[in-house]
Amino acid sequence: MNTNLNNTDELRQIPIVSYLEHQGYRPAKPENSRGEVKFLSPFRSETKPSFSVNVNKNVWHDYGTGEGGSIFDLVMKLWNVDFIKAKEILSKGTYKQMFYRPSDTHYERQRPSPFTDIRASPLTSTYFLDYCKERCIDLDVAKEECHQVDYRLSGHMNSAIGFENDKGGWEFRSPTTKICTCKAISTRCKKEGNTTVCVFEGFFDYLSFLTMMKPECRQKYDYVILNSVGMANKAIPILKGYKSVRCYLDNDHAGKNAFDIIRKEVNAENRSEKMLPFNDVNEYLCKGLNQSTSEQNV
């Protein structure tokens, strides 16, 4: 596969099947008469292949979540990066060295993490606190729930807002960064005996929810942050331990599919509709709606 390409249109033509095979994913079913190749989804563990690549159009579709698109969409979702980083990965051919393969697949890499010199400290940077302000997050909430993390990646030191997941990895966010050290769910158990759990797609939605809540109400619930809708299946065993499951996923196709996955297994309530016409909790918050609301309103 020729990876010495810099033009976006040329990069888009990199065969998705070849890219997946270079990552260690092998077709579960050969190409059929419609030009489709089936894989076990790279986003979750499964026994029946639900991930399809159309080799004629060079596009993919995940029947488990309803997501799909070009090779850029695949790389962005697979490694939780933005378009610019996805283009860099493809154009430099460094995708085999830069990241772990998602840890919930059958092909986890057996080599050291590319993230080194990770050092977490209290969130005090004016740069990151201003970013939280821009996203309407209460700074006391941000300081309590997040860290300021310095880390080395590809030989360069970086800093970001860090939100820890249940595998001891980090979700990193900044005005220019959206990346993670490993794929995993984040759980936050606020008080022993809680019977209600709230589910969010990303941790800024979780921070937004806490910002909207009165401080005395925040401890009434436990929280599950998927960090990716592809982790919905992984959340099921956790959610089954609660009497009430409230889902605040994005108001888009992927979010609705993730809710359907959860609803099939637990008695879940779709609270995302309360955020309409906005896409997610953070957007809802940033429009200035009910920032001092109680839990009855959200």
Rank of each mutant, 00 (worst) to 15 (best):
M213N: 00
F203I: 13
T187D: 05
M213E: 07
L210G: 04
E201Y: 03
M212C: 14
E201V: 04
E216L: 06
G193S: 11
Q219L: 08
L210Q: 03
V197I: 15
G202Q: 06
T196C: 14
C217N: 15
I185T: 06
E201C: 03
L207T: 01
K191S: 08
R218H: 04
E216Y: 11
G193Q: 09
A184K: 02
V199K: 06
C189R: 12
M213H: 00
F209A: 06
S208L: 06
Q219R: 10
E192Q: 14
D205N: 11
F209S: 05
Y206D: 01
P215Q: 07
P215Y: 07
C217W: 13
K190I: 03
T195E: 15
C198I: 09
V199M: 09
T196Y: 08
G202F: 11
L210D: 02
S186F: 00
F204L: 12
C189L: 14
S186L: 06
T196H: 09
L210T: 00
C198Q: 11
C217Q: 15
V197F: 13
T196A: 14
C217Y: 14
K214A: 07
V199Y: 10
C198G: 05
Y206L: 06
I185P: 04
V197W: 09
F204G: 01
T195Y: 05
E201N: 04
F203Y: 15
E192L: 13
V199Q: 07
